[in-house]
Every structure is written in structure tokens, then in C-alpha cells.
Write a protein that binds this DNA or RNA. Structure first.
Lengths: 147, 147
DNA sequence: TATTGTTATACTCTATAACTATA
DNA sequence: TATAGTTATAGAGTATAACAATA
């Protein structure tokens, strides 16, 4: 009689997986902050630009950035001073100011996204089946609009 | 003749997967920051405490927090003023100050970690095979010491 | 000389509260 | 009255440069 073969890899505990998620989240933002810093942008400025693929009201940005609305004023002020975004009063409700990317802002977002992709080489190397699986598992752990 | 059945789920592109990783990382930190805030701690203070399961020199903390060493002085000052950490001069190299959790600091870390786990309910519900797969895929995308 | 940690400085991010304009 | 955005304020995080103590 032979010993039963051990499983090819041990299953991590949920706690071990949480620690790995912490690492992955930190690694993602370390990379993102570095890409933003190459353009003289802070992490929050980079995140804000990335949220503006479609124009959004200040209030919506505050919710998406998970910060108080008063902070968004300063963040948008600084991005606007650098010519990366502009404000437009909403014609339907003149209390609302929609924030839009300028041409330079759009170019900046494009470059940051491209460099993020080329930095996350692991992503490029995943096969289709692996990408499907990762998407499914992430959506189970972080149920969300995912877009 | 019947149409060939489409695959049960379409494979996301690497770019779509990057966006989902961005969402997951944001969701992780939103949750972590909320757990820290319940104890009157900022995100950085919570991250710093979580790094101190083993004592670490100031310099090492700066590397792990991905910030300049001068910032760590202030972060540790504030945690020390609240009785959550203490500094000890390294006997082998008196330039080095090792930072240790106090009893209250350890209790705080325990509680934050426990609440993180109970909040990430998706993690608890993954089966062993799924946990193995997620660990493997994460380590491919974010190759790292993972601990 | 090189390294560790601190201080000083200036800027950014952060929440709270009070305010204006609009609905 | 309620909501969107701003301003004022104080505290926290950030990088840079200069410094003291130690190696």
C-alpha cells in the first residue's frame, strides 16, 4: 500500500487569503501611485482622473472617492489649475457642476492606463480560462458593479 | 441545426480584469479604512499597526508603507501618544529604533483583523478548491512574498 | 563616509461646520 | 426645506532637504 498522495497544493485558510488580498491591494496601489507620480500627480488626483471617463458631478466623485464632498473641491481645483479637467454647470440643475476631462486630461488617463497594463505583466500572461476564473472569484469576494 | 452554444461566461480582456482589480483593491481599502475609523485610526495608522505583528525598525516600516522615512516619525509619534506602540533602541545597532505593539496595540490589531474577516463574507464562503485557485491566480498577477 | 532617525518646511488630503446658490 | 458646491479650519499624510547620532 502506498501513502495517499497529498493534494498538489495546500488550500489557504480564509485568513491567509485575506492577508494575500491585503498584499495584492497594496501592490496595485503602489503601482498606480508610481504611474501617477511619473506625471506629478498624487494618488487621489490619479484616481479622480481615472473616474472621469464619463463626466461626473462633484457629488458623485465624492461618493466614488469615498471622501467628503468638501475635499473634492480642492482636488478638482488643483487638477483644473493644471488644465486636466474643467467644470461645467449642468443646464438641467444649475446647482450641479459636471467635471470633464480636457484633451490633456484624457491623454494623461490613457497613458496611466497603458502603463498600468504593461506593469501588470502577470495579467497579460493569464489564459482565457484563468481570466474567467479570476473574474468570477473576485466578484464573489467583492460583489460589485465591477465596471 | 442548432446554434453552437456560447461559452457559459465570456472571458474578460486583461484590461477589463485590470478595472476589476482596481475595484477590488478600492473595496478592500474602503473596508479596512472603515474598520480602522471605528477605533479613531486613519488608514495609514491601521496599516502601520497591521505591519507590526513582529517588531520592525522605522526604516523597514517606511519601505513597507511605501513612503519616506520622515513620515514614519510622525505616524509612530501619534500611535505612541495613544499607547498603541512603543520604540526600543536596538542593542546591536544603536542607530536603529525597533517599533513594537503594546498590549492595547495588539488587541486593536486583533479586533481589526477579526472585523475584516467578518466583513469579507465572500472569503468565508469560498470552498477549498476556490481558495487554492484564487491564491494561485493572485500570486501570478502580484508575485510577492505574500505574507 | 554611510546609515538611521529626526526636524523643518511646504503642499496635499481629510472631516467638520458654516455658508451661498439653486431646487 | 433640501441639495450641490464652496470656504474656513484643524489635523494627518507626503516628499525634500538639512541635521545629529551611530556605525
Amino acid at each position: 500500500m502506498t501513502e495517499p498522495a497529498p493534494p498538489p497544493t495546500a488550500a489557504p485558510t480564509p485568513v491567509e487569503l485575506m492577508d494575500q488580498l491585503a498584499w495584492a491591494a497594496a501592490a496595485y496601489y503602489r503601482h498606480f501611485a508610481a504611474m501617477a507620480a511619473e506625471r506629478g500627480l498624487t494618488l487621489m488626483q490619479g484616481k479622480t482622473l481615472s473616474l472621469l471617463r464619463e463626466p461626473k458631478p462633484m457629488r458623485t466623485l465624492a461618493e466614488l472617492l469615498a471622501c467628503d464632498a468638501s475635499n473634492v473641491t480642492g482636488i478638482i481645483d488643483r487638477l483644473q489649475a493644471r488644465g486636466l479637467v474643467r467644470r461645467e454647470v449642468d443646464p438641467a440643475d444649475r446647482r450641479i457642476k459636471n467635471v470633464l476631462l480636457t484633451e490633456e486630461g484624457e491623454e494623461t488617463v490613457r497613458r496611466i492606463r497603458a502603463e498600468m497594463m504593461s506593469g501588470l505583466t502577470g495579467l497579460e500572461h493569464l489564459g482565457e480560462a484563468e481570466r474567467r476564473t479570476l473574474r468570477q472569484l473576485l466578484s464573489e469576494v467583492f460583489p460589485a458593479p465591477a465596471g
